[in-house]
Design a protein around this nucleic acid. Structure first.
Length: 676
DNA sequence: TAGCCTCGAGTTCA
DNA sequence: CTCGAGGCTA
């Protein structure tokens, strides 16, 4: 072998190590992907030709290890302890008092703490011998874990060796043996990517990033792990040969200088009050992180005090895990009810024993459709995990299979409508089953609620409750009947005073002025929502022109194709529709189309609002955009011109940032449309 | 014809 | 907010 080959390989390894470090630990890449690939290919070439030069810490060894038949046990030198939980500020202060009592300190004195994020992932330990990664293992029972070295090597933020030049300029030698502790996690973006892939290939999806990370790490085939871009944050040291530390905070900085990824969100707090304040500050902010945390870890900063405090059973007395109120909880499904929507869609809804999730009581959650019920295999009597997706809407995450008794009842979609008894049909290739009944009371009710709703005729004071009463009293049978209601009729109903009756009638009267687009939308034609209704109104200008249009004419409207055209034509052919339109006209409703400013500052642009707006309502904000010639939209894509992000903006903001779409705050938006 | 972009529809709780 | 499906475009 030529003498300089080993040297060249070494230089390549250093360059690749540095590139991995800058990219995966520091988030500041210095070379392009192409350059990286070139270096990697050259190194692989050399190692293939001269296998004797391969070292265990070579970057080529991150992938390509062979499949194992089972995971070998690994004994930790220093056990990995688990932490006691604190469920609120009270328990946190109780922990502080315990610490002081144990140390024989005055209850009013202060102990210095370090607060760190508690990642929702998998705790692992990395063992380095003479600076080279020798073993990696899961926590296991704390004493013995599973050896997952090959899998951990595929995690790019895990250094394969601690560079000799690290630390304080060489005067501070790398310990001969050191155990580095941390948490392996999946970022949200990567979690989504994995689940999308699995969905496409028909594999079951992971319920949450933690499960996905655990599943990926405990793979027997490291090639699979390599495809899941895992990440690791390090926060502690177990055994350490020939080096002592003074504080937890010092440990974090040393780990960072050794090239480990250390999370920057750390706070040294002089008092327990500061700790509480810091933790409260993250209660909301944690949702903006690109990965999951399930709380905060609070540690006594001084290692001297730590060893004085020691441990009880398997948890140290010097640390505690603060848990934010759970965003997930388990409960029991008591019933799967079937609801009938405006379009006749049958939706299974899980009725559950009420349970607290993130501060609110949840008792029902949609199961969307029959396929979804099958996929999650939810049965009546099952114990299930529920969470609030996107902070609000409850969702059944998964069934707790271990709690099955065998008495659970599988769900079957009824073949007759639970409300009117008509046949239920599921169109070829569609996910939803529908009631075909023409006069299904549920459909009529939902149609009327839709007609009066915000965005449609917007009749204030006429909501679902009143509509139910009116139907029961036989006062209305279709939406047009609303316009013949009198104050006297309304007053005669239960729980209806003269004042609210007058208000309702006034609102009904006012709605007669609604623009054509609203009326078209209010009719509730299948496949015609707000946007399509607006496009139709612009194109036809009167309801009669729309009603008379042929399918070909309808399909000429932008955004309307054969399916939409067929649905509209079919709707206007029905005798029922003709009767209702006649009644509406008789009541004095004959709206004209509206025009828009084509020279406004948003002309031809698409604007998306996300998060909670403080000074404007959604409707006001969208009206401003429309007035200035733009179209408000609900989803972000690369065609989006602008995203206005309010408080607690979520995935849309993330997407906008990743697509490089212009983003501004509500304040900046107002400044722009109305500079003063 | 495939893949992207939008829109429609359904849903929960305070 | 999320999913599914219709329409448009490369």
């Amino acid at each position: 072998m030529p003498h300089n080959i080993a040297d060249e390989a070494d230089v390549l390894r250093r360059k690749l190590d540095r590139a991995d470090y800058l990219y995966y630990v520091k988030d500041q890449p210095d070379i392009s992907d192409a350059e990286y690939d070139k270096l990697m290919r050259r190194l692989q070439e050399l190692e293939q030709t001269y296998p004797s030069i391969i070292t265990p810490d070579s970057p080529t060894q991150r992938v390509g290890a062979t499949v194992q038949s089972e995971l070998a046990p690994h004994t930790h030198i220093v056990p990995m302890l688990s932490l006691q939980n604190a469920m609120g500020e009270d328990e946190l202060r109780a922990f502080d008092q315990r610490v002081k009592r144990f140390l024989g300190l005055d209850p009013d004195s202060d102990v210095e703490y370090v607060c760190e994020l508690k990642f929702d992932g998998l705790a692992v330990s990395l063992t380095y011998v003479d600076g080279v990664l020798a073993a990696g293992a899961t926590r296991g029972d704390g004493t013995v874990g599973e050896n997952i070295t090959a899998n951990l090597k595929t995690v790019k933020s895990v250094p394969l060796r601690i560079p000799v030049e690290a630390g304080t300029g060489g005067t501070d030698p790398i310990p001969s043996t050191v155990e580095v502790r941390g948490e392996v996690i999946l970022f949200h973006e990567e979690f989504r990517r994995i689940n999308e892939d699995r969905e496409q290939s028909g594999e079951p999806t992971f319920a949450n990033p933690r499960n996905a990370a655990a599943g990926s790490l405990r793979q027997l085939d490291p090639n699979i792990t390599a495809k899941r871009r895992l990440n690791m944050f390090c926060y502690g040291i177990g055994a350490c040969e020939g080096r002592a530390f003074v504080t937890q905070h010092e440990i974090l900085s040393i780990l960072e200088s050794w090239g480990f990824r250390v999370n920057p969100n750390v706070c040294v707090c002089a008092t327990i009050d500061d700790v509480c304040e810091y933790i409260a500050g993250w209660a909301e902010k944690k949702e903006t992180l690109p990965y999951d945390i399930d709380g905060m870890v609070v540690k006594v900063n001084s290692l001297t005090l730590q060893s004085e405090l020691g441990a009880v059973a398997r948890s140290p007395r010097w640390a505690v895990a603060f848990k934010y109120p759970a965003q997930q909880a388990t409960t029991v499904v008591t019933e799967i009810r079937v609801q009938v929507g405006r379009t006749g869609a049958l939706t299974p809804v899980a009725i559950m024993e009420p349970v607290e999730v993130g501060g609110v009581t949840v008792s029902r959650a949609t199961l969307h459709n029959e396929d979804e019920v099958r996929r999650k295999d939810v049965r009546v009597g099952d114990t299930v995990v529920v969470q609030r997706a996107g902070e609000v809407i409850p969702e059944v995450v998964e069934v707790v299979a271990e709690k099955r008794t065998g008495d659970e009842v599988e769900f079957v979609m009824p073949d007759h409508c639970p409300v009117c008894g008509a046949d239920v049909e599921r169109a070829e290739g569609e996910a939803v089953a529908r009631c075909v009944g023409i006069a299904c009371p549920a459909k009529i009710r939902e149609t009327m609620i839709h007609f009066t709703s915000r965005g449609a005729m917007d009749i204030d004071g006429v909501g679902p409750a009143l509509i139910d009463q009116l139907i029961a009293a036989n006062l209305i049978g279709d939406p047009a009947d609303i316009y013949s209601l009198t104050v006297e009729q309304l007053c005669a109903l239960d729980r209806m005073g003269s004042k609210s009756a007058e208000n309702a009638v006034a609102a009904i009267e006012k709605s007669k002025q609604a623009p054509l687009s609203r009326l078209i939308y209010a009719l509730g034609i299948r496949h015609v929502g707000e946007r399509t209704a607006a496009a139709l109104a612009r194109h036809f200008t009167t309801i009669d022109a729309l009603a008379a249009a042929s399918e070909n004419e309808l399909a000429e409207v932008p955004d309307a194709g054969p399916v939409v055209a067929d649905s509209i034509a079919r709707f206007f052919r029905q005798d029922e529709t003709k009767r209702v339109l006649e009644k509406l006209r008789a009541a004095g409703i004959d709206p004209r189309g509206e025009s828009r400013d084509e020279s406004g500052m948003f002309a031809g642009q698409s604007v998306v609002f996300t998060g909670a707006l403080e000074r404007l309502t959604r409707d006001q904000a969208e009206a401003i955009v429309r007035r200035l010639g733009g179209s408000p939209s609900s989803s972000v894509s690369k065609n989006t011109s602008l995203v206005v992000a309010g408080e607690k903006a979520g995935s849309k903001l993330e997407k906008a940032t990743s697509l490089g779409v212009k983003v501004m705050s509500e304040g900046e938006f107002l400044e722009m449309v109305d500079p003063r």
